[in-house]
Simulated assay, not measured.
Amino acid sequence: MREPIVLQTGDVTAFGYAVPTTVVLVAVALVVGLALAVSFYLTIGLSVYRSVQDTRRDRVRPALREELLGRLFSPDPDWEDWVADCSRVERRVIESLLDEHLRELDGGDADRLRELGDALGIPDRSRRRLDDGGEYQRLHALTWLTLLRRPEPYFESSFEPRTPRERAAAVTLLQATDRLPDAETRISMLLDGADEQFTVFGQDTLYRVARTEPAPLLRAAGSDYRDWPEPLLAQVLAVCAHLETSVRDGSLEWVTAALETENDAIRAAAADALGSFGWRPSLRDQVFLERATGDPTPRVRAAVYEMLAAWGDREALTVLLFALVEEADPRALTIGTTALVGRRDRVDHDVAAVLGPAWEWSFEHSEYDRLAGKTATETVGG
C-alpha cells in the first residue's frame, strides 16, 4: 500500500502532492515578475507608438491647415479629391482641424467646410457608432452630427437616447438643425423618464430650451417633480431661477412645495427660483413669507432674503428688513443686507439706523464695487 503523505510545516497540497511553500512562492514571484515585465514593455511600446504618431501629426499639421484654408476660400474646394490622396494620419489631422474651425466659423464658410466632413465620411461613420458603439462613441457621433448640421444619420439609425448626456446631445443636434417642432417636444426628450441628474452640458441644454418658451418646463416639473432625484430637481430649479419674468403661465405650486422639503439645498434652490416669479400674487401670502424667512437653516434664509430683494416691491422689502432685524447668523445677515442695499431707494424706513453695522459694511462694499466698476469702464473707454 502507498504510504500516506506526511505534511511538514509550511507545505502546500496540490493534486495529491505536498509542495514546499518556498517553491510555491518562487513560482508566484516568477509569474508576477513575468506579468510586470510584459506590462512594462507593452506600456513602453504603446508610448513610443503614440509619440511617433503625434510627431507625424505635428509635422503635417501646418501644411494641412494651410491647404484646408486655401481650398475653403477657393471657388472649388474639391474636398473629395483632396481627401482621397491623403494618408490615414493626414485624414485624422484634417478631422481635428475641421472640428476646430467648425466651432469658430459660421454662415457660408461653415456650410462649405461641412462638405469636407461629408468627404471624410463622418456622417456614415457616426451612424454606425450610434447603432453599435458605446456611450462615449455615441456622444462623439452626436457631437459631429451637430457640428456638421447632419441630422439624417440620427434618424436613419436605431439609436434611442438613454442617459442624460445622450438626451442633451440629441436635443442639441435636433435643435441646431430645426428638427424639433416645439419646446414641448424638447422638454419631453430631456425629462421624460429622467432618473438621474444632468451633466453641466445637459443643464445648459435644458436652460437654452426653456428660456425661449418656459411654460413646458413648468408643466413637466409640476407633474413629475416628485419622481425626480433631488440633484435633478435642484438643477431644474436652478434653470428656473434664470428664466425671470418671461414665464407668463404655468403652476408654481411645485416650487413652493420644494421650499417645504427636508433638504436645505433644495429649499435654497427653490427660493432662488421664486426670485424670478415675484410678480405672481399667489406668492404674496403673509403666512408663506413668514414661514420662508423663519427657515431653520441660515443658507435657506439667505436665499429667501435674496428672493425678496429680487422681487423689489415695498411690501417684500419691508418683510426683508424686519427679517434681517431678527437674523442671528452673520453670513445670512450679510447676504440679506447686501441684497437690500441694491434696493435702498425703495425702502421707506431709516435702514442705517435699523441695521446698524451690517448696513454700513454692506453699503461701503457696494459703493466700492460701484466705483471700481465705473473706473474700469472709464479706463476701457478712454
Rank of each mutant, 00 (worst) to 15 (best):
Arg127Asn: 02
Leu97Asn: 06
Ala302Thr: 00
Asn263Ser: 02
Phe15Asn: 15
Ala352Arg: 12
Val239Gly: 11
Pro20Tyr: 01
Arg127Gly: 06
Glu290Cys: 10
Thr9Asp: 14
Phe15Thr: 13
Ala169Ile: 07
Arg125His: 06
Thr22Met: 12
Val319His: 13
Arg165Asn: 15
His140Phe: 11
Ala323Cys: 07
Arg138Lys: 07
Phe73Lys: 10
Arg59His: 10
Asp182Ile: 08
Val171Thr: 13
Leu147Pro: 08
Arg179Ile: 00
Ala238Gln: 05
Ala238Lys: 04
Ile44Leu: 09
Ser366Arg: 09
Val347Asn: 00
Thr143Phe: 08
Thr55Pro: 04
Arg343His: 09
Phe40Arg: 10
Arg167Glu: 01
Ile44Ala: 07
Ala309His: 00
Trp361Thr: 14
Ala352Gly: 14
Ala352Ser: 15
Thr9Ser: 13
Thr13Phe: 13
Arg280Phe: 02
Met189His: 15
Glu104His: 13
Leu283Arg: 04
Gly278Pro: 07
Thr143Asp: 14
Glu315Leu: 03
Gly202Cys: 12
Pro229Leu: 12
Arg179Lys: 12
Val6Ala: 13
Val341Gly: 04
Ala372Met: 13
Val26Tyr: 05
Glu326Thr: 12
Thr43His: 01
Asp124Ile: 11
Asp124Glu: 15
Arg112Glu: 02
Ser366Ala: 15
Ala273Ile: 01
Thr185Gly: 04
Ser362Val: 03
Leu7Ala: 14
Glu66Tyr: 05
Thr55Trp: 10
Ala210Thr: 04
Ser157Met: 04
Ala194Leu: 12
His365Leu: 12
Val287Glu: 15
Asp178Ile: 03
Thr375Gln: 13
Ser157Asp: 00
Ala176Asp: 14
Trp79His: 11
Ile122Ser: 02
Leu7Phe: 13
Pro77Val: 10
Val26Glu: 01
Ala221Phe: 00
Asp109Tyr: 05
Leu139Asn: 12
Ala141Met: 11
Asp11Thr: 07
Leu142Arg: 08
Pro216Tyr: 03
Asp224Cys: 01
Lys374Glu: 14
Ala18Glu: 10
Ala353Asn: 03
Ala14Ser: 14
His365Ala: 09
Leu7Tyr: 04
Glu95Gly: 06
Cys86Met: 13
Leu252Thr: 10
Asp249Ile: 08
Thr261Glu: 04
Trp144Met: 14
Asp76Val: 14
Asp99Val: 07
Ile44Lys: 08
Thr338Pro: 04
Leu105Tyr: 12
Val354Asp: 01
Gly336Thr: 00
Thr205Ala: 00
Pro330Cys: 07
Thr245Met: 01
Ala372Lys: 04
Asp295Leu: 04
Tyr207Asn: 02
Gln137Glu: 15
Val300Phe: 05
Glu196Val: 02
Glu80Ser: 14
Ala63Phe: 04
Arg57Gln: 09
Arg344Tyr: 02
Asp195Leu: 06
Thr199Ile: 11
Pro281Met: 05
Glu3Ile: 03
Asp285Asn: 10
Ala37Gly: 11
Asp78Pro: 07
Trp279Val: 06
Leu174Asn: 03
Glu230Tyr: 06
Thr172Met: 02
Leu233His: 05
His349Asp: 14
Ala210Phe: 01
Trp82Phe: 14
Val23Tyr: 03
Ser96Pro: 06
Ala332Val: 02
Ala14Tyr: 15
Arg50Asp: 02
Ser188Met: 03
Val304Cys: 06
Ser246Tyr: 08
Val247Thr: 15
Ile187Gly: 05
Arg248Tyr: 01
Glu67Ile: 11
Phe155Leu: 10
Ser251Val: 05
Leu233Met: 07
Ala234Ser: 10
Ala310Tyr: 01
